[in-house]
Each structure stands twice: as C-alpha cells, then as structure tokens.
Design a binder for these strands. Structure first.
Lengths: 329, 329
DNA sequence: TTGAAAGCGCTAACAT
DNA sequence: ATGTTAGCGCTTTCAA
C-alpha cells in the first residue's frame, strides 16, 4: 500500500501538497491538483488513518456501551447514533459490557488511550465512580440511563410520567386491580416507573397493594413468566398488569395463556419499550414507546458537540403509549 | 495525559526503556523496572494506542459486518467473535451495513486505511466483487454466508442437510403435505435449504408442489404472516410448514392462530435459527439451531490466524434440530 | 542492561 | 501556490 510520500514523488510535488489535495484545504492550483489526483489513482493510494489520527490526536471512533447486544431495546437507538456518527465522519464501536467490570475497563482505557474520542453509555450497571472520573477528562454522554444530580449530560424520557400514562390507560379501561412487574429498583428507571404507577393509582383512589407488586432480578422473558405465575396465585387476582419491559410483558402473556385465561378480557397487559417482537405476539402488546431513534441521534449529537469542546445540556424526550390488542382486544 | 517521554524523564531513564517495561520485553533490571512502574503510576500514564499502532502498523481492530443489528440471529455469533477477539487483544467494530453499498465502502476503506486489521462478513448482500478484490490484499473471513467455489475462507453449517433434517422430522410425524416458506433464492443458503427440503420429500416419495413453496423478499415477521396467508388459501392445505427463519415461522404461527387453526394439530411449524424469541411464542417453536457461539469463535480464530499470515481452511460445523411444541404439541 | 536515533504516515506552521 | 521542516507517541535497531 502506497504512502503519501510515494504519491508525492510520482506527482512531482511535496507530501504537504498531497495532504492539501486530500483535505481540500487552502490553495492548490488546479493543475497540481490534477497531477496529484492522477498519481493517487495510479498508485491506488488510500490515506492511512493511523498516521492522520496520530497527527491530529483523534481517532474519530465513538464508543457505545450497552449491557448486551442481545437486548432488542437498543437496536433503534444504535441506528440513530450510527446515522449521526457517520454523517460527522465518526465510526462507532459497539461494546457489550455484559455487566462485566473488566470489560468496562477495556473500554475506558480505549478512551484514555486515544483509541476512541468519547463514550455514549447505555449500561445501567456501569461503575458510576469510574465513569465520573473518566468524564472529568473525556467526553461522555449517558443515554436512557442516567444519574440523578450527576454531572454527566444525559438524554432520556420521563419514566415516571410514561408509567403514569400506561397505568392511567389501564384505569380508564375500568381496571381497578392493577399489578406491577418491576425490575430491580437499584435502577433509577425502575424506581421512577414505580412512582408513576403509584401516582396513577393514588390519583384515582385505587389501592396500592404489596401483593400486586413483583420485582424481578432480570428483564428476560422467563422472569416475566415467573412473576405472572406468582401474581396469579394472589388471593385477589389483578385484572391488569403493567410490566416495565416488553420481554417481561411477553412472559406474562405466555403465563396467562397457559393458565387458560384470556388477554385482555381476563387480564390486560401493558409493556414498555415497543421492541420489534411486541407486535408479533398474540395478542399484540400495548406498550410505551420511547423515541429510540431520536434518542440515539440526540446522544450522538451531544457527544460530538462535547468532543468539539462545547458545553451540552441534558435532554428529556417525549414518549408515546401504543395501544394494541393486549388492552383493547 | 502524560506520554512516554514524560514517564521516561520522571523515572530518569530513556523512552526506550519505558517501552521495554510496557511490553515486558527483553532485558530490564528489576531496579529500573520498579522506577519506571512507579513513574507510570505517579503520572497516571496510559500508552497511546495511536502511537503504538502507527509504529506497528496495525490497529488491533476487527470489523464485523452484519446486514442489520436488529436481527437477533447474529447475537450469539457476535458474542463468540468478541470473546476470542478480546482474548487476543483485539477489539471488534460492529458494522451494520443495512444492505447499503455506501456503508460497505466506508468499512472496506477502514481496512485499506489500516484502521482495521481484518473483516468477518456475515452480510449476504455484500458486493462480492469488491470483497474478493479486498481479500487479495487483506484478511477476510465469511461467516454463515459464503460463496460456492470462492476463494475467501468461510465457516458455516450444511444448510442442505439441516433443512433435510427439519423436513424429515415433519415427515416422520406423519405429515405428507409440507409447505416451504423460503426467502429470496439469490442467497445461497436459501437455495441450499430448498434442496434439502426437496431431498427429504423425494426420499419419502412425497410430491413437491409449487403451490406449497412460497418465496418472501425479506425475513421479517410480516412476510411470514403474508406467506402463511397465501398458503392457507391453497386448495389442498398443507399440514406442516418449514420456514427458513424463525421470524418467518413466528409470522406463520400468528397467521395460523388468527385463522382459528391449531399448531401443531392442524398445522405443524418448524423454523430456523433458534433465536431467543423462538421459545417465547405460544406454542414454542421447533427450530434448527446453528452453533452460533462456536461459529463466531471459529470465525474470529480464523481471522486472527489469517492476520498472522497463516493459511486457513474453511470449516463446516454441525447443526441441531430443537424439537418443541410447534411440532410435538 | 540501557540509551540514542530513526522512522511509522500524516499535517500544520513557517518560509519562500 | 508550494516546499521545508518538525513532530504527534511509540518501538526497534544499533551501539555502548
């Protein structure tokens, strides 16, 4: 693979001139430009990013941290990030941390090492303290997950309000016994969604009963099945369930079905996230949609701004309740 | 961020010695090593990959090309790739081409540019000619998708045999009218799976009827729904369906359900891929499992070998038929 | 065992 | 408008 020097020699100019042609910068006579372009073609030359990046001390690589690539929730967000990144001549490095602190370290080091210019983190299990330390010296944006009162800029939705809307929808349909399948409340979003659930119940003077609130350790399907199994054993069976993730909701759907009950006639179900599979279920799932693509775009724009040295403000985006068969069969 | 020179000064040694300590190479007296290590800690020094990579003319980045991140089929493969990559001090750059030729170009250029050391491609829609050209000068491995008689090493399963096993399973259950929901036969795997389907039918003297073979343009759920709708309108309704992807099969499941028919009593269904959601459906889906994690590991090992300059051979891995409720309710 | 020096490929400041 | 020069941070000869 030819280098800039060889192109320069072939074109009979200096390396600096070749560089100027490559970067369309300042003054190059059209005659010289032609010579250089010809030499580039001739030698099949491609500039080395390695040299360029070292010189400019940037990598034009953005790190995107997700807990696991198997979670479909992140798909659209990533598309958004990617679109904005590529438009700004950045590439993204998708990193599944699998909630593994060692992995985190590898990726943090990439930033310190100049192998990446910044981070968008969507991992709620990430080491907060290390992230905060890193954020003092390097551009970092939180997406979807964030820290209350933290100093790292974030983009998110109003989880409390979104949960409130979901539960209010169930109430409006006449449900009075509404269960909550929540995840681990060490996560901020889980706490906020419970608050929204409770706010809706209180507003309509409905009881908040402990037996109707179930916490799962993880968001996988099986945990939804298990949660629903328990809820069906409660003395006064709930007539509706709000699950804080679609995968949990789909698990609940399955378990209700297995028990010979009908959704939504016996039990209505609402999920959260509007993952692709949420309209492949039978019945299709009512769910809360986060503007994922937009969230990704926003996060990427914020990060790129940060890299440029600008100050950026956190942003809260709107959500949307998508009503489908699992509540309005 | 400190550089190697500053560490050297602080430790009272040369940059060369610091480099030796960093790379655990050749001879450094333990006394000097201690001094250097102390200085590194003191300055919070992290070596710049940019400098190192330029010098070594490698990036230790592996490109992984997939058609779209939203396809759950790739999840486990990627995990396998990632595991092997990290163990060998490589990072992976996950690239969704969205079957967009411009994207392909960006990624091809990264390799030419030395921003990546090699490519694992899982994109069946990729530009074959350009890929072949690139493969002459750079390490490339095909994973799952490959080219018959091509020169690029690949890892895959025997699609024909796998389809044969799936259909034979349906036949053994007593089905005589077996439909095929296939994807676009421009893809090699689609042609091979049809061949397997036909081989099984022939072996048991069952008719291969055109009306029972439906081709979809894409693999999404909706296309499965549509395909099944058509198959249900055929005069002699099939009693079993083999779909070449789980998403298509799940679509078929849904449509059968909507028409008040029962799976598997009225129609048995087999999918392909064993995606996570294939056991969240109702009934759970019988499907062909590819050893995805292993496939990813294998591909990564092959690529790394290639980068080292070794010759590598293509590999065909075993598949497995996972029997669930959609055929054995 | 260690240091000096060269150079990976590129760009930017300065000079002409 | 173009060339010269220096240097980004690192590793690797070669010499001591």
């Amino acid at each position: 693979m030819a280098n800039i020097q060889q192109v320069a020699e072939k074109a009979g100019v200096s390396a600096a001139t070749v560089s100027r042609v490559l970067n369309n910068v300042s003054s190059v006579s059209s005659k010289t430009r032609l010579k250089v372009e010809h030499a580039i073609k001739e030698l099949n030359y491609e500039p080395s990013m390695l040299g360029r990046n070292l010189r400019n001390s940037e990598s034009r690589l953005l790190l995107v941290l997700i807990p696991s690539i198997s979670n479909p929730f992140y798909t659209e967000i990533i598309k958004g990030i990617e679109t904005i990144a590529i438009a700004n001549h950045y590439n993204i490095l998708l990193c599944a941390t699998d909630s593994n602190a060692e992995r985190d370290n590898i990726y943090f080091n990439m930033v310190k090492n100049k192998l990446a210019d910044g981070i968008i983190s969507m991992d709620p299990t990430i080491n907060r303290q290390k992230l905060n330390e890193l954020a003092e010296k390097h551009p970092i944006i939180l997406c979807s997950e964030y820290e209350e009162g933290g100093s790292i800029p974030y983009v998110t939705i109003d989880h409390k309000l979104a949960a409130y809307h979901a539960v209010k929808h169930l109430i409006k349909l006449g449900n009075k016994k509404i269960a909550l399948i929540n995840s681990d409340e060490t996560y901020l979003y889980a706490r906020q969604r419970r608050e929204g659930y409770e706010r809706a119940l209180q507003e309509f003077n409905l009881p908040i009963r402990k037996e109707w609130i179930y916490h799962t350790e993880h968001l996988e399907f099986e945990h939804g099945v298990h949660a629903m199994r328990r809820l069906l054993q409660v003395n006064e069976r709930p007539t509706a369930v709000f699950a804080v993730s679609d995968t949990l909701a789909i698990g609940a759907l399955k378990e209700i079905n297995v028990n010979g009950l009908h959704v939504p006639n016996d039990i209505a179900v609402v999920g959260f996230d509007k993952i692709t599979f949420s309209n492949m279920t039978n019945p299709t799932l009512t769910t809360v949609a986060q503007p994922m693509y937009k969230m990704g775009c926003t996060a990427a724009n914020m990060l790129i701004n940060r890299i440029k040295g600008n100050q950026v403000e956190s942003i809260v985006l709107d959500h949307e309740l998508v009503i489908r068969e699992s509540t309005m069969g």
